[in-house]
Design a protein around this nucleic acid. Structure first.
Lengths: 220, 220
DNA sequence: CCTTGTTTGTTGCAAAAACAACATAATCTC
DNA sequence: GAGATTATGTTGTTTTTGCAACAAACAAGG
C-alpha cells in the first residue's frame, strides 16, 4: 500500500484530497525512517517538533517509574500517530515510543505549520482542523483505557479490556497486540496473577485463548 | 474579577488581546449560566456543541459504570474548561459534569468556529491554535492522572497524588478539591481502606491532615 | 537439530484491599 | 440550638493480589 493511501486512513489527513498530499508533505518536511524491532524511536525526557505516523509495523507507548517498573500506555498500528502532544506543548516527553516489530515511520514537522505558516497553503486550515480532531480522539482513547484500569479487580480489568477489544473488532474472536507481560503492564496488574486469573476464567467457560488470540464465550 | 480577565487566564483565550475578546464572544454565541451545588451540567449520553469555561465555583467530571460505581475523573476550577472533546468529535458524552459548589459557567459555541467560519474573524486562527494547545494540555492532565492510578497499592497512589499536588502548588501544605469519598473514587480505591492507610501514614510521620488540608512532612 | 533464552502458567504464602458494620465528629437544616 | 444527615475513621473478616520460585512450552539462534 502506498503512502498516500495509508495517510488518507489517518485522522490527520482525513478529508484531504489525495492530489494535495504530496505538496503538504513537502510543506511538512516529511521524512521516512525504518527501524528494527525493539527500537526506541522517542525516549523519555526527549523533545521533538515532529509527529510520527506508522506506515508499517507497530509501536508501543511505554513509561517507566523511578524504580524501573514499566507501564504500557498504548499500542499503535498502521495509520496511527504519536508525539502530537509533544509537538503542540513543546514539553519534554514522559513516555517512550518503542517498536514491536520492524516498523516504518513517517515524520512530519507539524510544529511550524500549526503555530504559523506564512506560505498560506490552501490546505493548512484543513490540517489544523484535523489536528484538533486527532487530539480529541487521543483524549477519548485515554478515557477508554482509563475505563479499564479504574476497575478494582484483575478479573474486571481483563473483562473490560477484552470486551472492548471484541466490540472494536465486531467479533468475539480476535488478537490483541500484547504478550502477557505487556498486557499485565497495560492493565497495571502482576503478570503471573493475571495468568492465573485468565486460566480460571477459561476453566469457568468465559473465554478461550491461545497466546494473544482470544475468543469470548457467550453466556447461555 | 470580570470575565475578560478570567478568560485571559484560560488556555483557550491565552495570547488573545483583551480588546478582541468581546467580539470573539459574540462570534462564539457566548452565554453565561449559574448553577447550584450538586447540579449536573452535562450528563452521560448527552451531546453538545458548546464548550464550558468555569467563571466561578468548581465542577467534577465523573462517570458511573453499569452497577453505579462512580469514578471521579477530574476537578476543574476557575478558568478551566470542559466538553472540548465532545465539541470536537461530536460524540455522546461518557462523563457527567457536576458542580461542587454554586458555580457560574460561560458556554461557547466552539463547534461552528473550528469547523468552518466564513466570517474570516482575524482572531479565528489564534482560537483554533489555542484549541490545539487546550486539547494537548488535557492529554497531559489525563496522563498525569494515569500516572497516579497505575500505581499498584493504595499507599503508592496516595503518595503519587499528594506529592504531585504539593509540587503543583509549590508548597508542602495544601488543600485538595475532594472529600474522602471523592478522593477514593479519583484514585480508584475503597474509601475506608484509604482512610485507614492515611491514618497509618500519619502515625508514621509521613504527613498531617485535617479533612482536605494536607501537609507533607519532609524526611530527615 | 540442539541448546539457550523467552514466554506462559502454576503454586504457596504473605500482604494488602475490599467489604460490612459501626462509632464519632462535623455539617446542615429547620 | 437541636435533630437529622453526612463525613470520617476504626475494626474484623474475607477475598484478592503481589511476589518468589519454578516447571513446561515455545521460539530463536547457531
Amino acid at each position: 500500500m502506498d503512502i498516500v493511501t495509508i495517510l488518507r486512513h489517518s485522522v490527520l489527513f482525513s478529508q484531504i484530497q489525495a492530489e494535495d498530499i504530496p505538496n503538504l508533505l513537502t510543506c511538512l518536511r516529511a521524512r521516512k525512517s525504518e527501524f528494527p524491532k525493539d527500537y526506541t524511536i522517542i525516549d523519555e525526557r526527549e523533545f521533538t517538533d515532529e509527529l510520527g505516523i506508522v506506515l508499517s509495523g507497530s509501536v508501543n507507548i511505554e513509561r517507566h517509574d523511578f524504580w524501573g517498573n514499566r507501564t504500557v500506555v498504548s499500542n499503535l498500528g498502521v495509520a496511527d500517530s504519536f508525539a502530537e502532544t509533544l509537538v503542540c506543548t513543546q514539553q519534554m516527553s514522559e513516555v517512550s515510543v518503542i517498536t514491536c516489530e520492524p516498523t516504518t515511520i513517517l515524520f512530519l514537522n507539524i510544529h511550524q505549520v500549526i503555530t504559523s505558516c506564512s506560505k498560506g497553503c490552501s490546505f493548512h486550515h484543513a490540517l489544523i482542523e484535523n489536528m484538533v480532531r486527532l487530539l480529541s480522539y487521543k483524549n477519548l482513547e485515554l478515557m477508554k483505557k482509563m475505563n479499564h484500569i479504574t476497575k478494582r479487580s484483575t478479573r474486571e480489568k481483563l473483562l473490560s479490556y477484552l470486551s472492548a477489544e471484541a466490540q472494536k473488532r465486531g467479533s468475539r474472536s480476535f488478537s490483541i497486540p500484547f504478550d502477557r507481560q505487556q498486557l499485565a503492564d497495560y492493565l497495571c496488574v502482576e503478570r503471573s496473577a493475571m495468568s492465573s486469573e485468565l486460566s480460571k476464567m477459561r476453566s469457568e467457560g468465559l473465554l478461550e485463548y491461545q497466546k494473544s488470540f482470544f475468543t469470548l464465550i457467550e453466556e447461555d
